[in-house]
Design a protein around this nucleic acid. Structure first.
Lengths: 332, 332
DNA sequence: CTGTTAGCGCGTTCAG
DNA sequence: CTGAACGCGCTAACAG
């Protein structure tokens, strides 16, 4: 049984044990091809025997590369993000990167603070659904390679989930079912996705001659959706498209509280398809591509890191409507 | 507008600008009380003016403290973890720690690999629902302060969510409703929580003279639950307690596929209460304390880090049954 | 191919 | 209270 060797093993000890210079040990680990196979083997053997493992920190200080990246999201607990985080995580893993995770709590200040905390220890970062201003994003991007998810800033590499296509299908779907007056329950004002969805609802409603109202809702959550119901009903609309599934779920609950039946009396459509068919009635929603987005963002970042290139990249993923059971004609 | 100053600002530049020695600059940041207020102010001013920020890496190399911790979970996308991660995150934030997040993908090998990747850059780690063997956990704990969540290893600080109490209530609840034969749909074999829940079901069923069968299910997921339904039905039981809500949700779906009505023909109880009332029928389940667990684990780790103490800590959070609509008597 | 010698940026004795 | 000098562990020129 190997007892805990608390003593610090450095490159020096390995060098002595292998009878070579310290630099050779270093090279054996980072550029084996510069050494004779014989030497490499001797060094690696000695290292293994001693249980030596290179000190990441010292290496970073000397090279400037720490092998870390940061991922910041507004709310880890929002079901939209975990799959994205997971995908990013696994992609980072493929290139041996460690990922710092930050939760901005939907707050720009906090997000800024996190970036500051991370920036000294990472080679690059990805901001998902950033709540930061364009200026702040540009400022940070000037310091380190930066990839955005669901945020469209010129010149900054970005991965966009185009919920517009799905939302347009949603509006068309409602129009086909005979709805003439709908309402969009908005998300965070600083959210790019929210702007995009709101616009898509407006435009296609206009084109299809539907009346459309907007109901504000500060944060995307079950509670917020539930609270928005009063305002939603007050508009006199017969169907609602919510910023996301969580909000939609809250609306469903609020409607049920008021004994308003879905879908016969009122139609509801969500966005992001994070709830699967788990709501009741199962939610008609717009598909989500968060896994692809997370993976794409990270592989993009890794690519940027490796090939110092700084092209203007804009990667778009489209979406479509998933019809379930919260939508039928307004009068049954 | 400040343009991107890509030049590396070191302690040296600040020293010159402030007209002091480099060491004074260092002290102004780490031990202001050792300097005259006047000097501190001058240094901080100069630093602010230049936009200087201490190099975390260099500092770490010199002090051994990097201000990072790692958190490893089996599956970020499992709804049990995001709230836990978020809580841990925010607690770390309070002490200015950066957190590395790792996803072991339910695989001990991967978990080991992650620990190895992180250990060189963190002061401590927390393993949530670790799939590692006791030996490996002990080995890692010997290197760095380590806190466990839902894993009970002697001598290692741990935070345990005692689902046993809630599960016992669940069994009693079923017994009261008149069920005489129940089945437990198990989770991962390496899961401590699974062992605990299985045992609690067995024991209390025995005490209440209920017959109990066990159905295996490798990973906790919707799919796995759905697939387990055939075996569940085959046992002839009238109610099932699932390892977690995800599995329970899958069971609900599988039952619906077979036109078996819940709760009138079959009762289902989940664990962890991660779905809220979002399933249909809304799921009777065992409450979860993951937020407290995440927070507690991290504050415990921070505490260990600060006060080198190594007491044997075992922090237990109890749970209880949350009755909703998937359980009534077996014959209606 | 391999050894020697500087730093990387900062914290920390140890004198003054 | 402040400055000079050494070291953290490793990589990167620069010789041989």
């Amino acid at each position: 049984m190997v007892s805990g060797q608390k003593e610090k093993l450095t490159i020096k000890h390995v060098a002595e044990a292998a009878g070579v210079a310290r630099s050779s040990v270093s090279r054996a680990f980072t550029r084996p091809e510069m050494l004779s196979p014989e030497t490499v083997r001797r060094v690696l053997d000695a290292a293994a025997k001693l249980g030596y493992v290179p000190n990441q920190t010292a290496r970073a200080l000397s090279t400037g590369r720490h092998g870390n990246v940061a991922l910041i999201v507004p709310d880890i607990a929002n079901p939209f993000f975990p799959p994205l985080i997971r995908a990013a995580q696994m992609e980072a893993d493929r290139s041996d990167f460690c990922v710092f995770l930050g939760n901005s709590d939907e707050d720009p200040k906090q997000e800024d603070k996190l970036v500051g905390r991370f920036v000294g220890q990472v080679e690059g970062l990805v901001l998902a659904s950033s709540r930061l201003s364009d200026e702040r994003i540009r400022a940070h991007a000037a310091q380190r390679p930066l990839v955005l998810i669901n945020r469209d800033v010129d010149g900054i590499p970005r991965v966009l989930i185009d919920s517009g296509s799905g939302v347009r299908e949603a509006v068309a779907h409602l129009a086909e079912l005979g709805h003439r007056h709908i309402v969009y329950v908005a998300g965070p004002a600083t959210s790019w996705s929210n702007k995009q969805r709101r616009l898509a609802v407006r435009k296609s409603a206009e084109r299809l001659r539907l009346k459309v109202d907007i109901v504000a809702s500060v944060v995307p959550s079950y509670e917020a959706g539930r609270e928005a119901v009063a305002a939603v009903i007050a508009t006199g609309a017969t169907a609602a498209i919510a910023f996301d599934d969580l909000t939609a779920q809250g609306i469903l609950a609020g409607l049920a509280d008021r004994r308003i039946n879905v879908p016969s009396q009122f139609g509801v459509i969500g966005c992001d398809d994070v709830l699967g068919a788990a709501t009741y009635p199962s939610l008609t929603t717009v598909s989500n591509r968060s896994v692809e987005a997370g993976k794409a963002a990270l592989s993009l970042l890794v690519e940027l890191l490796q090939s110092q290139s700084v092209r203007d990249i804009r990667y778009v993923l489209d979406t479509h409507l998933v019809v379930r059971n919260t939508t039928i004609g307004p009068t049954e």
